[in-house]
Amino acid sequence: MSATQAIVVEGLSKRYGHIEAVHDVTFEVNAGEIFALLGPNGAGKTTTIEILEGFRERDSGRISVLGYDPADRRTSRELRERLGVVLQELAVEPFLSVQQVLTRHAGYFSRPLPVNNVLEQVGLMDKAATRVKRLSGGQQRRLDLALGIIGNPELLILDEPTTGFDPSARRDAWDLIRKLTENGTTVLLTTHYMDEAEALASQVAIISGGRIVAQGTPESIGGRDRGACRIRFWLPPGTTATDLPVPVSEGAGDAVEITTDHEIEVLARLTAWALEHQVNVIGLTVERLTLEDVYLRLVGYEAGIAAGGET
């Protein structure tokens, strides 16, 4: 592993009985970047993450996390000093105050961040003295995030970190995660929200049926930057689809849609026709496939050829 790679995974495999939860998974996460692992439930995301955390043992493959093998018990404490984790499940002690929970957790690390700074960062400063059980679900999730970063981690693993957040809390969490990476923290993230991956991640891997089916930047993954374009508009009043200079598929009402690899040519013909006939093309939009389109295509396709186990 070079100094610029925080995580290296090569040929990782893990079985539970007859079920192959993860098969030959390979990816790398560069230091200081945000890497998103996307996939449906049971795809192998949590198994992969738990192996990286040293919580589960792998069957085969080579792994390096911050230069350590997470399965090596002799160095597990050193690795955990440098690792922050936000779990999928809400895990906070109900009877202690927010400040007490954070102070206790900070004491497990040798170089923790100041508790008040972290409370400020997650927006819980005014709740410092409140018992955890009196926090709302979203506030408890923010406390969860605070527990993940209190140890001043070099690598932060976030397993669906903003599930249960309201939209503004989500934006705040994104800002916080971006700020952490500005200070050099590497983030490995799983999420069901495509907009979250798109907003945060510089690299994305899609896992389905225990295999990585696509990997790249959010803008280019699955050929997103090269693939078909979708042009949509409303039929101008008094015209029919057959009057148009290009073939279209008809949607609801007067809406029509064109899917093409040659969007410049199609738009040129369409706009020339509109000018010539003095009609307005209302509601004209041009969009590439969304990350969600790519995701659903890849996951749907893979689901057909490989059965994913419960992981």
Binding site: E53, G54, F55, R77, R80, E81, L83, V85, L87, E89, L90, A91, V92, E93, H105, Y108, F109, S110, L147, G151
Partner: peptide, 14 residues
Amino acid sequence: EMGLLKRIRLSPLP
């Protein structure tokens, strides 16, 4: 069952 033990296991606390 709340996940508190898992969180402790993932921290440096022996």
